[in-house]
Write a protein that binds this DNA or RNA. Structure first.
Lengths: 227, 227
DNA sequence: CAAGCATTTAACTTATAGTTAATTATTTAA
DNA sequence: TTAAATAATTAACTATAAGTTAAATGCTTG
């Protein structure tokens, strides 16, 4: 009986390691893919190059990702998750009555966007480019599609919930929360893109993006904060 | 002598017709390309299908457009031109002192975006997706690249000029005109994209986009108009 | 009618996504 | 220690699409 139980624990441990290794492999592929997709763009990225970058063979990639599209889309998930969890923190703070003014709330929301951008600017760009490929989304496997659009919808929802709570608390003016949350997302998405359009090179862009976001924040505060 | 002159005029007329026909051919290709690119997206669009849609053969396309990328990018030009000329009209009106309030000016700017969107929503979307393909731009022929980026820069400039003039006239508050014009472009670009993200289907989107834009307009007016 | 032009046809080359089967290496369980 | 299972690699393959080419066709002009 003892032996049987030890055995079982051993197998358990092995399964854990295997799953860990599998995860590492997937992470390795994702990291390589992100690097190549970001530097070359979707169209000019080849699976062979990703395999080379990840130091594995091409069929191995296909063992973990059905298609190029699916690999590309998978880069979105961790990013959307980070957005969501950061929003959740703001939501918690808001529900605990930690925001004295709407200004503070808006400041935190903008800080969230900037942090996400700073934390992973390449992911951010990949995310932005992803949304242009509407046609890709529909081609994904059911699984991948529902995972991504689910996370995306969740992020939208939680952002809207934050706005609604803020309105209920009288922190910001009574405005259509759907539209307002779309506007805030839109400002951020649009601004990062405008920046990318204007300067082919990077570098000084980040600083300018941040100062422009600060102005956008100020304008938004002027427009929506309840005095 | 008479005969020689008539001859010359005749040749001239023929050259004109030829150039007109050439232009028609190009327009036909562009129209077909726009249709296919918009319905299928860049990746899944084939040159054979564009040729079929335009009712010409594939090599003929390559007579007018070096590559698929260049054809894709060329769809941008008329769009950027329309933007520019609409902005020029606003600029003229502004310089003639036709705007009594900043609110009227902002309203016209938003109307401009909505008109461009209504007039050619597919171009608008193509334009949006175009800017994600940073990698495409660098691959274009010198000619195509400078034409597009030139027009794009011009549009940015004229928008900024309008804002500066409005500030000088005391219609809107004294705000960094570069940043403010980026924010306005960003709102529009971002919002159309957020809309595209949220609804895979179209239809009701347009109405919702317009009402959201109206809210954005109101917020912007509240934030930047000088009272 | 002959010369010049744009267009088409039909083939081709090249690149890449995606797949497969045989082989090799590694790990596990007895 | 060894047989079985697992995972990866190799090296091929298919299919599709971009881009090219040359010869043939037809239309316009002089």
């Amino acid at each position: 009986m003892h032996k049987g139980r030890r055995m079982h624990r051993h197998q358990q441990a092995i399964r854990e390691r295997k799953s860990r290794e599998k995860d590492q492999r997937i992470q390795g592929i994702l990291a390589a893919a992100k690097k190549v997709f970001f530097s070359k763009g979707y169209v000019r990225t080849t699976m062979d190059e990703i395999a080379f970058e990840a130091q594995i063979s091409k069929p191995t990639i296909y063992q973990y990702f059905k298609t190029k599209d699916e690999l590309y889309s998978s880069l979105m998930l961790p990013f959307l998750e980070e957005f969501g969890s950061r929003f959740e923190r703001i939501e918690k703070k808001l529900k605990n009555g930690k925001y004295a003014t709407g200004r503070d709330l808006v400041k935190d929301i903008f800080r969230l966007f900037i942090r996400c951008y700073e934390h992973a600017p390449d992911s951010m760009r990949v995310a932005n480019t992803f949304f242009q490929h509407q046609d890709l989304i529909s081609q994904l496997s059911q699984e991948a599609r529902s995972a991504i659009s689910g996370k995306g919808k969740y992020d939208f929802q939680i952002a809207r919930g934050v706005i609604e709570t803020a309105i209920a608390q009288g922190l910001i003016k009574d405005i259509d929360s759907y539209a307002l949350s779309d506007i805030i997302w839109g400002i951020f998405l649009g601004l990062t893109q405008v920046m990318d359009m204007k300067s082919t090179k990077q570098g000084s862009t980040d600083k300018y993006l941040k100062s422009t976001l600060r102005l956008a924040e100020r304008l938004l505060v002027d427009a929506i904060v309840q005095e």
